[in-house]
Design a protein around this nucleic acid. Structure first.
Lengths: 221, 221
DNA sequence: CGCAACTTTGATACAACTCAAAAAATGTGG
DNA sequence: CCACATTTTTTGAGTTGTATCAAAGTTGCG
Protein backbone atom coordinates (compact mmCIF):
# COMPACT_ATOMS: atom_id res chain seq x y z
CA UNK A 1 0.00 0.00 0.00
CA UNK A 2 1.02 3.57 -0.57
CA UNK A 3 2.61 5.95 1.91
CA UNK A 4 1.44 9.40 0.76
CA UNK A 5 -0.56 11.31 3.42
CA UNK A 6 -1.70 14.91 3.74
CA UNK A 7 0.84 16.65 1.60
CA UNK A 8 -0.21 19.48 -0.68
CA UNK A 9 -3.50 20.66 0.72
CA UNK A 10 -4.05 24.25 -0.23
CA UNK A 11 -6.72 26.44 -1.78
CA UNK A 12 -6.79 26.53 -5.56
CA UNK A 13 -8.47 28.94 -7.93
CA UNK A 14 -12.23 28.70 -7.95
CA UNK A 15 -13.87 27.34 -11.07
CA UNK A 16 -17.59 27.59 -11.70
CA UNK A 17 -19.35 24.48 -12.95
CA UNK A 18 -22.76 24.68 -14.54
CA UNK A 19 -25.62 22.29 -15.13
CA UNK A 20 -26.11 20.62 -11.76
CA UNK A 21 -28.30 22.53 -9.31
CA UNK A 22 -25.68 22.14 -6.59
CA UNK A 23 -22.87 23.36 -8.78
CA UNK A 24 -23.68 26.99 -8.06
CA UNK A 25 -23.60 26.40 -4.32
CA UNK A 26 -20.19 24.81 -4.66
CA UNK A 27 -18.94 27.66 -6.82
CA UNK A 28 -20.21 30.30 -4.41
CA UNK A 29 -19.72 28.75 -0.99
CA UNK A 30 -17.12 26.11 -1.65
CA UNK A 31 -13.40 26.40 -1.11
CA UNK A 32 -11.32 24.82 -3.87
CA UNK A 33 -8.44 22.75 -2.47
CA UNK A 34 -5.54 20.87 -3.99
CA UNK A 35 -4.98 17.31 -2.90
CA UNK A 36 -1.83 15.44 -3.82
CA UNK A 37 -1.94 11.93 -5.26
CA UNK A 38 -2.81 9.38 -2.57
CA UNK A 39 -3.47 12.00 0.09
CA UNK A 40 -6.38 11.39 2.43
CA UNK A 41 -9.45 13.56 2.04
CA UNK A 42 -11.28 12.04 4.99
CA UNK A 43 -11.12 8.87 7.01
CA UNK A 44 -13.68 6.21 7.75
CA UNK A 45 -15.57 7.03 10.91
CA UNK A 46 -14.69 10.71 10.88
CA UNK A 47 -17.46 13.21 11.34
CA UNK A 48 -18.92 14.18 7.97
CA UNK A 49 -18.40 17.91 8.32
CA UNK A 50 -17.89 18.66 4.63
CA UNK A 51 -19.26 17.74 1.26
CA UNK A 52 -16.95 17.63 -1.74
CA UNK A 53 -17.08 18.12 -5.46
CA UNK A 54 -14.32 17.01 -7.79
CA UNK A 55 -13.12 19.80 -10.07
CA UNK A 56 -10.20 17.97 -11.65
CA UNK A 57 -8.48 14.67 -11.02
CA UNK A 58 -10.18 11.71 -9.39
CA UNK A 59 -11.08 10.35 -5.97
CA UNK A 60 -11.58 6.87 -4.58
CA UNK A 61 -13.50 5.86 -1.48
CA UNK A 62 -12.49 2.61 0.17
CA UNK A 63 -12.48 0.39 3.17
CA UNK A 64 -9.71 -1.87 4.43
CA UNK A 65 -10.94 -5.38 5.16
CA UNK A 66 -9.75 -7.29 8.18
CA UNK A 67 -7.55 -9.50 6.02
CA UNK A 68 -5.70 -6.43 4.77
CA UNK A 69 -7.33 -6.27 1.36
CA UNK A 70 -8.76 -2.97 0.25
CA UNK A 71 -12.24 -2.64 -1.24
CA UNK A 72 -12.79 0.46 -3.34
CA UNK A 73 -16.36 1.67 -3.03
CA UNK A 74 -16.39 4.23 -5.81
CA UNK A 75 -14.40 6.49 -8.06
CA UNK A 76 -15.44 10.12 -8.35
CA UNK A 77 -14.60 12.17 -11.42
CA UNK A 78 -14.80 15.88 -12.27
CA UNK A 79 -18.30 17.16 -11.51
CA UNK A 80 -19.10 14.34 -9.08
CA UNK A 81 -20.16 15.15 -5.54
CA UNK A 82 -18.99 12.82 -2.77
CA UNK A 83 -18.79 12.64 1.00
CA UNK A 84 -22.45 13.55 1.37
CA UNK A 85 -23.50 11.24 4.18
CA UNK A 86 -26.98 10.84 5.55
CA UNK A 87 -25.54 9.71 8.85
CA UNK A 88 -23.15 11.80 10.94
CA UNK A 89 -19.93 10.05 9.99
CA UNK A 90 -18.17 8.86 6.85
CA UNK A 91 -18.70 5.18 6.14
CA UNK A 92 -15.61 4.90 3.94
CA UNK A 93 -12.30 6.71 3.63
CA UNK A 94 -11.56 8.96 0.66
CA UNK A 95 -8.25 9.58 -1.10
CA UNK A 96 -7.10 11.44 -4.19
CA UNK A 97 -6.35 8.94 -6.96
CA UNK A 98 -4.08 11.51 -8.60
CA UNK A 99 -3.39 15.18 -7.93
CA UNK A 100 -6.83 16.69 -7.73
CA UNK A 101 -8.68 19.92 -7.24
CA UNK A 102 -11.69 19.49 -5.02
CA UNK A 103 -14.22 22.05 -3.88
CA UNK A 104 -15.09 21.68 -0.23
CA UNK A 105 -18.31 22.99 1.27
CA UNK A 106 -19.57 22.89 4.83
CA UNK A 107 -22.28 20.32 5.20
CA UNK A 108 -24.15 22.64 7.55
CA UNK A 109 -24.18 25.49 5.06
CA UNK A 110 -25.49 23.16 2.36
CA UNK A 111 -28.28 22.00 4.66
CA UNK A 112 -29.04 25.55 5.62
CA UNK A 113 -29.32 26.39 1.96
CA UNK A 114 -31.60 23.42 1.37
CA UNK A 115 -34.07 24.82 3.90
CA UNK A 116 -34.64 27.98 1.87
CA UNK A 117 -33.90 26.68 -1.62
CA UNK A 118 -35.99 23.67 -2.50
CA UNK A 119 -33.91 23.09 -5.64
CA UNK A 120 -30.90 22.48 -3.45
CA UNK A 121 -32.94 20.21 -1.19
CA UNK A 122 -34.07 18.30 -4.24
CA UNK A 123 -30.47 17.96 -5.37
CA UNK A 124 -29.47 16.45 -2.06
CA UNK A 125 -32.17 13.81 -2.33
CA UNK A 126 -31.25 13.12 -5.92
CA UNK A 127 -27.61 12.69 -5.01
CA UNK A 128 -28.46 10.27 -2.21
CA UNK A 129 -30.68 8.30 -4.55
CA UNK A 130 -27.97 8.16 -7.20
CA UNK A 131 -25.45 6.98 -4.65
CA UNK A 132 -27.74 4.16 -3.57
CA UNK A 133 -28.28 3.13 -7.19
CA UNK A 134 -24.56 3.20 -7.77
CA UNK A 135 -23.86 0.88 -4.85
CA UNK A 136 -26.63 -1.44 -5.99
CA UNK A 137 -25.07 -1.60 -9.43
CA UNK A 138 -21.78 -2.37 -7.74
CA UNK A 139 -23.37 -5.39 -6.06
CA UNK A 140 -24.51 -6.66 -9.45
CA UNK A 141 -21.00 -6.15 -10.84
CA UNK A 142 -19.41 -8.28 -8.16
CA UNK A 143 -21.34 -11.43 -9.02
CA UNK A 144 -20.21 -11.53 -12.65
CA UNK A 145 -17.14 -12.86 -14.42
CA UNK A 146 -13.86 -10.96 -14.62
CA UNK A 147 -14.45 -10.05 -18.27
CA UNK A 148 -17.92 -8.76 -17.54
CA UNK A 149 -16.69 -6.73 -14.58
CA UNK A 150 -13.88 -5.13 -16.55
CA UNK A 151 -16.10 -4.45 -19.56
CA UNK A 152 -18.75 -2.85 -17.33
CA UNK A 153 -16.12 -0.77 -15.63
CA UNK A 154 -14.79 0.55 -18.92
CA UNK A 155 -18.26 1.33 -20.23
CA UNK A 156 -19.23 3.10 -17.04
CA UNK A 157 -16.11 5.20 -17.23
CA UNK A 158 -16.72 5.95 -20.91
CA UNK A 159 -20.27 7.06 -20.10
CA UNK A 160 -19.04 9.37 -17.40
CA UNK A 161 -16.10 10.93 -19.16
CA UNK A 162 -17.91 10.93 -22.50
CA UNK A 163 -14.65 11.32 -24.40
CA UNK A 164 -15.76 9.43 -27.49
CA UNK A 165 -14.22 6.02 -27.45
CA UNK A 166 -11.02 6.79 -25.59
CA UNK A 167 -10.63 6.62 -21.84
CA UNK A 168 -7.76 8.08 -19.87
CA UNK A 169 -7.51 6.00 -16.71
CA UNK A 170 -6.59 8.10 -13.70
CA UNK A 171 -6.34 5.02 -11.49
CA UNK A 172 -3.90 2.13 -11.33
CA UNK A 173 -4.61 -1.51 -12.08
CA UNK A 174 -4.59 -2.10 -8.33
CA UNK A 175 -7.30 0.53 -7.87
CA UNK A 176 -9.40 -1.08 -10.57
CA UNK A 177 -8.81 -4.54 -9.11
CA UNK A 178 -9.88 -3.39 -5.65
CA UNK A 179 -13.01 -1.83 -7.12
CA UNK A 180 -13.94 -4.92 -9.10
CA UNK A 181 -13.08 -7.44 -6.41
CA UNK A 182 -10.32 -9.00 -8.53
CA UNK A 183 -6.52 -9.18 -8.38
CA UNK A 184 -4.22 -6.88 -10.35
CA UNK A 185 -3.06 -9.83 -12.41
CA UNK A 186 -6.59 -10.77 -13.39
CA UNK A 187 -7.42 -7.19 -14.36
CA UNK A 188 -4.27 -6.99 -16.47
CA UNK A 189 -4.88 -10.35 -18.12
CA UNK A 190 -8.51 -9.47 -18.77
CA UNK A 191 -7.56 -6.20 -20.46
CA UNK A 192 -5.06 -8.10 -22.57
CA UNK A 193 -7.74 -10.63 -23.45
CA UNK A 194 -10.19 -7.90 -24.44
CA UNK A 195 -7.47 -6.39 -26.59
CA UNK A 196 -6.93 -9.82 -28.17
CA UNK A 197 -10.67 -9.95 -28.95
CA UNK A 198 -10.36 -6.51 -30.52
CA UNK A 199 -12.92 -5.13 -28.09
CA UNK A 200 -10.43 -2.54 -26.91
CA UNK A 201 -7.00 -1.20 -27.78
CA UNK A 202 -4.34 -0.26 -25.25
CA UNK A 203 -2.11 2.46 -26.73
CA UNK A 204 -0.63 2.75 -23.25
CA UNK A 205 -1.42 1.21 -19.89
CA UNK A 206 -3.47 4.20 -18.79
CA UNK A 207 -5.22 4.79 -22.09
CA UNK A 208 -8.00 2.53 -23.34
CA UNK A 209 -9.68 2.82 -26.69
CA UNK A 210 -13.10 1.19 -26.91
CA UNK A 211 -12.95 -0.21 -30.40
CA UNK A 212 -15.92 -2.56 -30.20
CA UNK A 213 -18.67 -1.07 -28.10
CA UNK A 214 -21.10 -3.73 -29.30
CA UNK A 215 -19.05 -6.50 -27.81
CA UNK A 216 -18.37 -4.62 -24.59
CA UNK A 217 -22.06 -3.95 -24.16
CA UNK A 218 -22.83 -7.60 -24.76
CA UNK A 219 -20.50 -8.41 -21.88
CA UNK A 220 -22.03 -5.68 -19.75
CA UNK A 221 -25.77 -5.75 -20.51
CA UNK B 1 -37.92 -20.58 -10.78
CA UNK B 2 -41.23 -20.70 -8.96
CA UNK B 3 -44.67 -20.19 -10.42
CA UNK B 4 -46.67 -18.63 -7.59
CA UNK B 5 -48.07 -15.14 -8.32
CA UNK B 6 -50.63 -12.91 -6.68
CA UNK B 7 -52.69 -15.45 -4.83
CA UNK B 8 -53.88 -14.66 -1.32
CA UNK B 9 -53.73 -10.90 -1.13
CA UNK B 10 -56.21 -9.66 1.40
CA UNK B 11 -56.34 -7.38 4.44
CA UNK B 12 -55.32 -8.97 7.72
CA UNK B 13 -55.88 -7.83 11.29
CA UNK B 14 -53.95 -4.73 12.25
CA UNK B 15 -51.16 -5.17 14.77
CA UNK B 16 -49.48 -2.25 16.49
CA UNK B 17 -45.71 -2.31 16.65
CA UNK B 18 -43.81 -0.10 19.04
CA UNK B 19 -40.28 1.29 19.24
CA UNK B 20 -39.64 2.65 15.76
CA UNK B 21 -40.92 6.18 15.14
CA UNK B 22 -42.56 5.06 11.92
CA UNK B 23 -44.27 2.11 13.54
CA UNK B 24 -47.15 4.23 14.75
CA UNK B 25 -47.75 5.65 11.31
CA UNK B 26 -47.89 2.15 9.91
CA UNK B 27 -50.24 1.01 12.66
CA UNK B 28 -52.57 3.98 12.13
CA UNK B 29 -52.45 4.59 8.41
CA UNK B 30 -51.25 1.28 7.07
CA UNK B 31 -53.36 -1.51 5.69
CA UNK B 32 -52.24 -4.98 6.73
CA UNK B 33 -52.21 -7.41 3.82
CA UNK B 34 -51.55 -11.10 3.44
CA UNK B 35 -49.13 -12.22 0.75
CA UNK B 36 -48.75 -15.85 -0.19
CA UNK B 37 -45.35 -17.48 -0.48
CA UNK B 38 -43.56 -16.35 -3.67
CA UNK B 39 -46.19 -13.79 -4.58
CA UNK B 40 -45.03 -10.50 -6.00
CA UNK B 41 -45.32 -7.40 -3.84
CA UNK B 42 -44.01 -5.05 -6.48
CA UNK B 43 -42.00 -5.25 -9.65
CA UNK B 44 -38.79 -3.62 -10.74
CA UNK B 45 -39.50 -0.35 -12.51
CA UNK B 46 -43.00 0.04 -11.11
CA UNK B 47 -43.94 3.34 -9.59
CA UNK B 48 -43.15 3.37 -5.89
CA UNK B 49 -46.62 4.25 -4.68
CA UNK B 50 -46.44 2.42 -1.36
CA UNK B 51 -44.06 1.78 1.48
CA UNK B 52 -44.19 -1.52 3.32
CA UNK B 53 -43.49 -2.93 6.74
CA UNK B 54 -43.17 -6.62 7.45
CA UNK B 55 -45.41 -7.77 10.28
CA UNK B 56 -44.78 -11.49 9.97
CA UNK B 57 -42.99 -13.67 7.47
CA UNK B 58 -40.17 -12.44 5.26
CA UNK B 59 -39.59 -10.59 2.01
CA UNK B 60 -36.82 -10.64 -0.57
CA UNK B 61 -35.97 -7.97 -3.10
CA UNK B 62 -34.16 -9.10 -6.22
CA UNK B 63 -33.17 -8.47 -9.77
CA UNK B 64 -32.91 -10.94 -12.65
CA UNK B 65 -29.59 -10.67 -14.46
CA UNK B 66 -29.40 -10.93 -18.23
CA UNK B 67 -27.93 -14.45 -17.99
CA UNK B 68 -31.00 -15.58 -16.08
CA UNK B 69 -29.43 -15.65 -12.67
CA UNK B 70 -31.21 -13.92 -9.83
CA UNK B 71 -29.47 -11.58 -7.43
CA UNK B 72 -31.23 -11.07 -4.12
CA UNK B 73 -30.67 -7.55 -2.82
CA UNK B 74 -32.03 -7.97 0.68
CA UNK B 75 -34.22 -9.94 3.03
CA UNK B 76 -36.70 -8.06 5.19
CA UNK B 77 -37.95 -9.50 8.45
CA UNK B 78 -40.73 -8.54 10.89
CA UNK B 79 -40.40 -4.87 11.81
CA UNK B 80 -38.36 -4.00 8.72
CA UNK B 81 -39.55 -1.29 6.36
CA UNK B 82 -38.92 -1.77 2.66
CA UNK B 83 -39.91 -0.31 -0.70
CA UNK B 84 -39.10 3.21 0.44
CA UNK B 85 -37.47 4.63 -2.66
CA UNK B 86 -35.90 8.03 -3.02
CA UNK B 87 -36.58 7.94 -6.73
CA UNK B 88 -40.01 7.50 -8.25
CA UNK B 89 -39.75 3.83 -9.15
CA UNK B 90 -38.69 0.59 -7.52
CA UNK B 91 -35.16 -0.44 -8.40
CA UNK B 92 -35.72 -4.08 -7.52
CA UNK B 93 -38.68 -6.44 -7.41
CA UNK B 94 -40.07 -7.67 -4.11
CA UNK B 95 -41.62 -11.05 -3.27
CA UNK B 96 -42.83 -12.80 -0.16
CA UNK B 97 -40.31 -15.45 0.88
CA UNK B 98 -43.05 -17.28 2.77
CA UNK B 99 -46.63 -16.43 3.62
CA UNK B 100 -46.37 -12.98 5.11
CA UNK B 101 -48.37 -10.20 6.66
CA UNK B 102 -47.26 -6.82 5.45
CA UNK B 103 -48.56 -3.39 6.33
CA UNK B 104 -48.88 -1.15 3.31
CA UNK B 105 -48.92 2.60 3.54
CA UNK B 106 -49.25 5.24 0.83
CA UNK B 107 -45.95 6.88 0.14
CA UNK B 108 -47.70 10.21 -0.28
CA UNK B 109 -49.37 10.02 3.12
CA UNK B 110 -46.04 9.21 4.73
CA UNK B 111 -44.43 12.18 3.04
CA UNK B 112 -47.35 14.37 4.03
CA UNK B 113 -46.86 13.24 7.59
CA UNK B 114 -43.14 13.99 7.39
CA UNK B 115 -43.90 17.61 6.59
CA UNK B 116 -45.71 18.15 9.89
CA UNK B 117 -43.98 15.58 12.07
CA UNK B 118 -40.23 16.01 12.07
CA UNK B 119 -39.82 12.69 13.90
CA UNK B 120 -41.31 10.95 10.90
CA UNK B 121 -39.10 12.96 8.56
CA UNK B 122 -36.11 11.96 10.64
CA UNK B 123 -37.17 8.32 10.42
CA UNK B 124 -37.31 8.48 6.65
CA UNK B 125 -33.75 9.80 6.46
CA UNK B 126 -32.58 7.21 8.96
CA UNK B 127 -34.17 4.44 6.94
CA UNK B 128 -32.53 5.64 3.74
CA UNK B 129 -29.18 5.85 5.49
CA UNK B 130 -29.58 2.35 6.89
CA UNK B 131 -30.48 1.02 3.48
CA UNK B 132 -27.34 2.54 1.96
CA UNK B 133 -25.20 1.06 4.74
CA UNK B 134 -26.82 -2.30 4.20
CA UNK B 135 -26.02 -2.31 0.49
CA UNK B 136 -22.45 -1.21 1.21
CA UNK B 137 -22.07 -4.10 3.64
CA UNK B 138 -23.42 -6.36 0.91
CA UNK B 139 -20.62 -5.22 -1.40
CA UNK B 140 -18.08 -6.15 1.24
CA UNK B 141 -19.73 -9.55 1.66
CA UNK B 142 -19.44 -10.40 -2.01
CA UNK B 143 -15.64 -10.16 -2.13
CA UNK B 144 -15.08 -12.74 0.59
CA UNK B 145 -14.87 -16.54 0.65
CA UNK B 146 -17.94 -18.77 0.72
CA UNK B 147 -17.39 -19.60 4.39
CA UNK B 148 -17.09 -15.96 5.31
CA UNK B 149 -20.19 -15.04 3.36
CA UNK B 150 -22.28 -17.77 4.94
CA UNK B 151 -20.97 -17.02 8.44
CA UNK B 152 -21.71 -13.32 7.99
CA UNK B 153 -25.16 -14.11 6.73
CA UNK B 154 -25.96 -16.29 9.72
CA UNK B 155 -24.64 -13.70 12.19
CA UNK B 156 -26.59 -10.92 10.53
CA UNK B 157 -29.75 -12.96 10.73
CA UNK B 158 -29.04 -13.85 14.35
CA UNK B 159 -28.57 -10.17 15.17
CA UNK B 160 -31.84 -9.28 13.54
CA UNK B 161 -34.02 -12.05 14.90
CA UNK B 162 -32.24 -12.01 18.26
CA UNK B 163 -33.54 -15.44 19.13
CA UNK B 164 -30.53 -16.46 21.22
CA UNK B 165 -28.40 -18.81 19.24
CA UNK B 166 -31.07 -20.44 17.09
CA UNK B 167 -32.16 -19.16 13.72
CA UNK B 168 -35.27 -20.23 11.88
CA UNK B 169 -34.55 -19.69 8.21
CA UNK B 170 -37.58 -18.47 6.30
CA UNK B 171 -35.72 -18.68 2.99
CA UNK B 172 -34.48 -21.56 0.87
CA UNK B 173 -30.86 -22.42 0.10
CA UNK B 174 -31.45 -20.96 -3.35
CA UNK B 175 -32.54 -17.66 -1.81
CA UNK B 176 -29.44 -17.61 0.37
CA UNK B 177 -27.21 -18.52 -2.57
CA UNK B 178 -28.68 -15.74 -4.69
CA UNK B 179 -28.13 -13.28 -1.87
CA UNK B 180 -24.54 -14.34 -1.28
CA UNK B 181 -23.58 -14.66 -4.94
CA UNK B 182 -22.95 -18.41 -4.62
CA UNK B 183 -24.59 -21.59 -5.90
CA UNK B 184 -27.03 -23.66 -3.86
CA UNK B 185 -24.51 -26.47 -3.75
CA UNK B 186 -21.82 -24.24 -2.32
CA UNK B 187 -24.17 -22.86 0.33
CA UNK B 188 -25.22 -26.37 1.31
CA UNK B 189 -21.65 -27.64 1.40
CA UNK B 190 -20.49 -24.63 3.38
CA UNK B 191 -23.20 -25.14 5.98
CA UNK B 192 -22.19 -28.79 6.23
CA UNK B 193 -18.56 -27.73 6.62
CA UNK B 194 -19.44 -25.24 9.35
CA UNK B 195 -21.35 -28.01 11.09
CA UNK B 196 -18.30 -30.23 10.77
CA UNK B 197 -16.23 -27.51 12.42
CA UNK B 198 -18.82 -27.38 15.21
CA UNK B 199 -19.47 -23.70 14.48
CA UNK B 200 -23.14 -24.45 13.92
CA UNK B 201 -25.61 -27.30 14.27
CA UNK B 202 -28.35 -28.11 11.79
CA UNK B 203 -31.24 -29.79 13.62
CA UNK B 204 -33.17 -29.40 10.38
CA UNK B 205 -32.45 -27.73 7.06
CA UNK B 206 -34.33 -24.57 8.02
CA UNK B 207 -33.06 -24.38 11.59
CA UNK B 208 -29.53 -23.32 12.44
CA UNK B 209 -28.04 -23.30 15.90
CA UNK B 210 -25.03 -21.04 16.32
CA UNK B 211 -22.93 -23.17 18.64
CA UNK B 212 -19.64 -21.32 18.28
CA UNK B 213 -20.20 -17.61 17.93
CA UNK B 214 -16.51 -16.94 18.46
CA UNK B 215 -15.56 -18.88 15.36
CA UNK B 216 -18.37 -17.42 13.27
CA UNK B 217 -17.34 -13.92 14.25
CA UNK B 218 -13.75 -14.69 13.37
CA UNK B 219 -14.96 -15.62 9.89
CA UNK B 220 -17.16 -12.53 9.76
CA UNK B 221 -15.10 -9.81 11.47
C1' DC C 1 20.08 8.24 -16.35
C1' DG C 2 18.85 5.07 -12.82
C1' DC C 3 15.89 3.36 -9.48
C1' DA C 4 11.28 2.34 -7.76
C1' DA C 5 6.72 1.58 -8.86
C1' DC C 6 3.62 -0.28 -11.98
C1' DT C 7 2.18 -3.58 -15.44
C1' DT C 8 2.37 -7.77 -17.85
C1' DT C 9 3.22 -12.60 -18.47
C1' DG C 10 3.97 -17.41 -16.90
C1' DA C 11 3.22 -21.60 -14.09
C1' DT C 12 0.62 -23.71 -10.67
C1' DA C 13 -2.94 -24.21 -7.01
C1' DC C 14 -7.37 -24.13 -5.32
C1' DA C 15 -12.11 -22.45 -4.37
C1' DA C 16 -16.29 -22.46 -6.31
C1' DC C 17 -19.04 -23.99 -10.34
C1' DT C 18 -21.26 -27.56 -13.14
C1' DC C 19 -23.47 -31.72 -13.91
C1' DA C 20 -25.43 -35.72 -11.81
C1' DA C 21 -27.84 -38.33 -8.57
C1' DA C 22 -29.24 -39.66 -3.99
C1' DA C 23 -31.59 -38.34 0.22
C1' DA C 24 -34.79 -35.70 2.76
C1' DA C 25 -38.61 -32.72 3.28
C1' DT C 26 -42.98 -30.89 1.83
C1' DG C 27 -47.37 -30.76 0.00
C1' DT C 28 -51.61 -33.08 -2.03
C1' DG C 29 -55.39 -35.94 -3.05
C1' DG C 30 -57.50 -40.13 -2.01
C1' DC D 1 -53.62 -40.05 7.77
C1' DC D 2 -51.09 -42.22 4.49
C1' DA D 3 -48.93 -42.81 -0.28
C1' DC D 4 -47.19 -40.46 -3.96
C1' DA D 5 -45.36 -36.65 -6.59
C1' DT D 6 -42.73 -32.70 -6.26
C1' DT D 7 -39.51 -29.75 -4.40
C1' DT D 8 -35.61 -28.93 -1.66
C1' DT D 9 -31.32 -30.25 0.19
C1' DT D 10 -27.26 -32.84 0.30
C1' DT D 11 -23.44 -35.34 -1.56
C1' DG D 12 -20.23 -36.80 -5.28
C1' DA D 13 -17.05 -36.30 -9.26
C1' DG D 14 -14.89 -33.52 -12.41
C1' DT D 15 -13.99 -28.85 -14.54
C1' DT D 16 -12.75 -24.12 -14.63
C1' DG D 17 -12.00 -19.33 -13.54
C1' DT D 18 -9.47 -16.67 -10.63
C1' DA D 19 -5.86 -16.39 -7.06
C1' DT D 20 -1.19 -17.04 -5.87
C1' DC D 21 3.62 -16.97 -6.44
C1' DA D 22 7.36 -15.63 -9.31
C1' DA D 23 9.74 -13.03 -12.61
C1' DA D 24 10.31 -10.18 -16.66
C1' DG D 25 9.03 -5.87 -18.94
C1' DT D 26 7.65 -0.93 -18.76
C1' DT D 27 6.98 3.48 -17.19
C1' DG D 28 7.93 7.57 -14.98
C1' DC D 29 9.89 10.26 -11.55
C1' DG D 30 13.90 12.33 -8.97
Amino acid sequence: MLAAARTTIQPALAKATSGEPLAQSFAQLGVPMLYARDSEIYGEGEEAEFVYQVVSGAVRTYKILNDGRRQVGAFYLPGDVFGLEISETHGLSAEAVCNATITVIKRSSLWGLAKSDSDVAQSLWTLSARELQRVQKHVLLLVRTAQERVASFLLELADRTAAAGVIELPMSRQDIADYLGLTVETVSRTLTALEGQAAIALPSARRVQLTNMRQLRRLDS
